[in-house]
């Protein structure tokens, strides 16, 4: 993914969202890459509501077969979900299963007025009826199942996209 400039995509994503920000807008980042991205967007867009974070480990649909994810993080939703305009933020949209899990978890905190999805890259390969309202880049051809694309953050806080091959 050498041709993908994560920093530029992040700026594009912020500009897509900006016209739709209202006082009720709240961002929720999905661990880990999505939360990094959400932190950046939250500052960039000057969102008034505090930033939320979701770890979907407890809601994953592969728990029965794969077990609990190692060292899950605390989900923290520091705003009132009832009536909020929530934007879920993830780095890469793939099967849609993570989004499904995040939605289920979010609704255990209350009834949001609206939920939208913002992602840096849509890699294709959807297995559920999920679409991102805000998306900085859609790959021309879906990635193969063995390939893994994820956001990286270096020590200076700069974003990069890393493509790896699973064995």
């Amino acid at each position: 993914m050498k041709d993908l400039d994560a920093e530029a995509l992040c700026r594009q994503l912020a500009e897509q969202i900006r016209p739709h920000v209202c006082p009720a807008t709240a961002l929720v980042g999905i661990y880990t890459g999505g939360l990094w991205l959400a932190e950046r967007l939250h500052a960039e867009l000057g969102i008034a509501q505090p930033l939320g974070a979701i770890d979907v480990s407890f809601y994953r649909d592969d728990y029965a077969s794969k077990g609990l994810h190692a060292s899950p993080k605390k989900t923290e939703i520091p705003f009132d979900v009832d009536g909020a305009h929530v934007i879920l933020v993830d780095d890469v949209l793939y099967t849609g299963r993570t989004t499904r899990a995040a939605l289920n978890e979010l609704f255990d905190f209350g009834r949001p007025a609206r939920v939208e999805l913002a992602v840096l890259v849509d890699r294709g390969g959807r297995e559920l009826p999920v679409a991102a309202r805000y998306c900085a880049h859609t790959l021309a051809a879906p990635l193969a199942r063995e390939q893994n694309l994820e956001l990286q953050r270096d020590e200076a806080g700069q974003f990069g996209l890393k493509l790896t091959q699973r064995a």
Partner: peptide, 23 residues
């Protein structure tokens, strides 16, 4: 350590409107 690490995020569930996880 894995048990103690895993327990930490479960403490937060008590603060939720719906105190239930589907595991």
């Amino acid at each position: 350590n894995a048990i103690l690490d895993t327990a930490a995020p479960f403490t937060e569930v008590a603060e939720r409107e719906v105190k239930k996880l589907p595991l």
